[in-house]
Simulated scan of single mutants.
Amino acid sequence: MAKTQQPEFHIQIHLRAALGTFFKSQLFLTPPYPVATFTGKTVIVTGANTGLGLEAARHLYRLNAAKVVLAVRTVFKGETAKEDILNSVTARNDPNAIEVWPLDQASTSSTLAFSERARTELSRVDAVVLNAGINTKHFQLVEGYEQVTQVNVLNTFLLALVLLPKLLDTKTRFADSSPHLTIVSSEAHHLTKFEEINTPNLYEKLNEEQAYSQQPRYQVSKLLEVLLTRELVARLKGNPKFDMDPVIINLVNPGLCWSSLIRDDVKPPVLFRVANKLIARTTEQGGRCLVLAAAAPESSHGEFQSDGKNQDVEAWIYTELGGRVQKKVWEQTVPILEARKPGLLSAVGLG
């Protein structure tokens, strides 16, 4: 009898620790109310017309940001969000401080057009909060890739890498700037054994409709965000450009919140609805986490922020196994991004 071939990567998750941290945070901790000033600073928030992105943008306007760019799929909804912010923050009256820009991360051309506009029209970019993401029950290929993977992973990191030089330039030219690149992730990354990594081509596997399921795919997308961010930070280490004028790159977990992440015309799973009712924090409280991460100290560089503090990611990620998984994910993702924007890595000193 032939032996069953062992997987290249045997990932074991430890739910007890992750669940303990999750329930402690949801039941006993409230994210601190942001107080750090953003005076004179320009901040971009993606997915800013609703949910966590809207609440983060509201705080940033309240905290006196010189410019808050609401990056949204639908400009009309973005303008409505802008009016909502202006009407709610009565201590300030500066409508010109909020701009609404179109960005559809399902589209590579839209993602690149947005980044080029930021490069040419904004004199500085002090913080980028990459919050846009989807969680859907419907399988669909977009530009040849499954849509959750396309939006949450591929074009999120395309945008991150394209905007990195602008953040670095801001640090070089403005002494008062401490640029931040914050990627909104989730504790959901703890929940996946990531079996897809054991296939020769990760993204081909993620494109298989029969392998698609809503929550498992969302969990994988959040894990990929963690792995790619950690590998990016590791590869930038030792780069003189970034060592002398560091851009703080971190992840943030807003916790379980009332939000509009799940937008399908169907009810979420029963367990999700019960959890929302019993332990979810408000959208405003979740939005605080995004702002705290965008102003977090240098000790947050490469870390996973939760409730305004660094928090451990899933334990296996710190091991030798995690390093190998992380490297494979990076090596299979980067060629896709380079094809979308040739010279992408060399522009940040990784070519």
Rank of each mutant, 00 (worst) to 15 (best):
T4M: 13
Q6R: 10
H10D: 15
H14M: 05
A17E: 13
A18K: 00
F22M: 15
S25E: 14
L29T: 08
L29I: 07
A36C: 04
L54Y: 15
A56R: 02
Y61R: 00
N64W: 03
K67Q: 14
K67P: 07
V69F: 03
V69Q: 03
V72M: 13
V75C: 05
K77W: 07
G78L: 07
A81L: 06
I98N: 12
V100D: 11
D104H: 03
S110R: 02
S110G: 05
L112R: 00
S115R: 01
R119V: 00
V125Q: 05
V129H: 12
H138E: 06
H138F: 10
F139H: 05
V142F: 00
Q147T: 10
N152R: 01
T156Y: 08
L159P: 14
L167S: 09
L168H: 15
T170F: 00
T170L: 03
F174W: 10
S178Y: 10
L181N: 09
H190T: 10
N198W: 12
N198V: 00
T199P: 06
L202W: 02
E204A: 06
N207L: 03
A211Q: 12
S213F: 14
Q214R: 13
S221M: 04
L223A: 02
L227A: 00
R235M: 06
R235K: 15
K237Y: 11
G238S: 02
D245P: 02
V247R: 04
N250G: 04
N250V: 03
V252M: 03
C257I: 01
W258Y: 11
S259A: 10
I262C: 07
G286E: 07
V291S: 01
A294Y: 06
P297R: 01
S299C: 00
G302R: 07
F304E: 02
G308D: 01
W316L: 12
L321F: 11
A339L: 11
K341W: 13
K341S: 14
L344I: 04
S346Q: 15
